[in-house]
Computed example of a mutant assay.
Amino acid sequence: MVPTMVLVADGTRDVQRRAALHDLAEAVAERREAPVRAAFGTQEELRATVESTEGPLVVVPAFLAGSDAASTELLAGLDLSGRFDACTTAPLGAVPSIVAQLVTRLHAAGWQPGDGVVLAADGGMDLPGNSERRQVVDVARMLSRRVQTPVQVGYLHTWAPSVADAVARLRRNGHSRVAVATWQLVDGADLDGLREIDATAVTAPLGPSPVVVETLLAQHRAATSRLAA
Rank of each mutant, 00 (worst) to 15 (best):
A70R: 15
A70N: 13
V103P: 00
T42P: 01
R37M: 11
A25N: 05
L78I: 04
S67R: 02
E30R: 15
G11F: 09
R83L: 10
A108E: 15
P56C: 07
A70D: 15
R17Y: 09
L74E: 07
G110C: 08
P61E: 06
L24V: 04
V60N: 12
E73T: 08
D79M: 00
A108M: 14
V60I: 14
A109G: 13
A109S: 15
R37A: 01
V59K: 09
V99E: 05
A90G: 09
D23W: 08
G110I: 13
V58D: 07
V99F: 13
L24G: 10
E33D: 11
G110F: 03
A38E: 06
S81C: 07
V8S: 07
A109F: 10
A108C: 13
V15G: 09
L57M: 10
P35C: 04
C87I: 02
A62S: 02
E45T: 04
L74A: 01
T53M: 03
L74V: 05
R17D: 03
E45V: 03
V36E: 06
V60C: 13
E44T: 14
L80Q: 08
A39F: 08
P35R: 12
R13L: 02
A27V: 00
V15H: 11
P35Y: 12
R37Q: 13
A38Y: 15
L92I: 01
R18F: 13
P35M: 11
E45Y: 03
V60K: 12
L64E: 05
A29H: 06
A76L: 06
D14H: 13
V103C: 01
E30I: 12
E54Q: 12
L106F: 00
V58H: 09
E26R: 13
A34T: 15
F40A: 00
L75K: 05
D14C: 08
A69E: 15
V58G: 05
P56E: 12
R17I: 03
R37W: 09
D23R: 06
V50E: 03
R37E: 07
R47N: 14
D10H: 05
I98Y: 00
H22W: 13
G66L: 00
D23H: 12
